[in-house]
Amino acid sequence: MTVIYMPKQSNGTVHSAKDLNQLIDYVMNSEKTNDFEYVSGQNILDIHSTCDEMLATRTMANALKNKPQKNERFGYHFVQSFSPDDHLTPEQVHEIGCKTMKEYLGSSAEFIIATHTDKPHLHNHIVLNATDPLTLNKFQQNKNDLERLKEISDRISKEYGFARRACCNKEIFSIDFSEYKNIISEISATKSELKRIGNNINQIAKHLNENKNNQTKEWMSDYQKQLENLEEKIQEVVLFISEGE
């Protein structure tokens, strides 16, 4: 399962050169990326000069097109997380992240992506320059764009055999059991039918008991026990699937 979001604390935005530099230093941490093995960039000449290159793009845009604005956005921060249950390699996680962001941002965007391997759940950090180096325009996105990003992430992730479940912008992992919906639905319907049959048997047994038909009553009692045992087994299956054990 994969989850992609913008960190809630910062809303995924960077508003100064200092904060941009600190963020890039954090996501490129050599201890988290296997000595920079899982760091790559788009339209970045050298990952070790990422911040300087992004700031140079901004300076050029300000000189030719834009004027610096109050509370200006220097960059954006995205996180794409994966569950340990997906059993992915760092290379696969990095590849998924690169495909996702390239499709979402386009070929002219300037960003780096770093895959962190220091926790049980592998995850990508993406730092995007708020200024496009080709158009010199500022990056813009809305809620619909974020939903599109999630859809892209889902689609690409499914190529690797797993899917995302909704979360509230947190690194929460759970197994997707959507494929079992039909099974659970059929079992539930069967349980309802068994309950209806059981009620009918109770009425028949009551009638037989009143008529003192001991042999038939014994047979019906045994049948009802079998029915109860069957229902218990079905409940166990439903519980097993629901809990994912």
Rank of each mutant, 00 (worst) to 15 (best):
R196T: 11
A189N: 05
S30D: 08
Y104F: 13
E231I: 13
D25G: 11
D118V: 08
N43M: 03
K8H: 12
V127H: 01
C98Q: 04
R148V: 06
E228N: 12
K181T: 14
A205W: 14
N62S: 03
I44D: 01
S178R: 09
D154T: 06
M6T: 12
K150P: 03
E171H: 04
R196I: 12
K225S: 10
Q203W: 13
L208G: 03
V79E: 01
M101S: 00
I204A: 11
N71A: 11
K138I: 07
N214Q: 12
S107A: 11
F139V: 11
E179V: 13
P90T: 03
I47Q: 00
D35H: 03
M101P: 00
P120Y: 02
K99I: 05
L23W: 03
N211D: 07
V93T: 06
Q22G: 13
E147W: 06
C98K: 09
K18E: 10
D19E: 13
E103S: 04
D19N: 14
M1T: 07
N182H: 15
A63C: 04
L55F: 11
F78K: 02
S49P: 01
K195Q: 14
T13W: 04
M6Q: 14
Q22A: 15
E193Q: 11
N202D: 15
L105W: 01
E218A: 09
L45G: 12
A63V: 05
D19W: 09
S49G: 05
Q9V: 15
E245L: 07
N137S: 13
R165P: 02
N199P: 05
I156F: 02
K233Q: 14
D86N: 04
N169G: 11
N169C: 10
Y160Q: 08
L194S: 03
V237I: 14
V79T: 08
E110Y: 08
I197L: 15
V27A: 08
I172M: 06
L227W: 09
K18N: 13
K102D: 05
K233T: 14
T57Y: 13
S185K: 07
N200E: 15
N214K: 14
E228S: 13
I152R: 01
L134S: 14
R165A: 10
A114P: 05
I172T: 12
E245N: 11
G161F: 00
A63Q: 11
D154W: 01
T13S: 15
L20K: 14
N213W: 09
D154V: 00
N43A: 04
T57L: 07
R164H: 04
L134E: 15
K206H: 11
D35Y: 03
Q42T: 03
T57H: 10
Y26K: 09
Y38K: 02
I96M: 02
I184E: 11
G198Y: 10
G198H: 09
Q9H: 13
T59K: 15
E110F: 02
I4N: 01
S10D: 06
L64V: 07
M60T: 12
I47F: 01
D132V: 08
S107I: 10
I234G: 03
R73P: 03
N144V: 04
T57F: 14
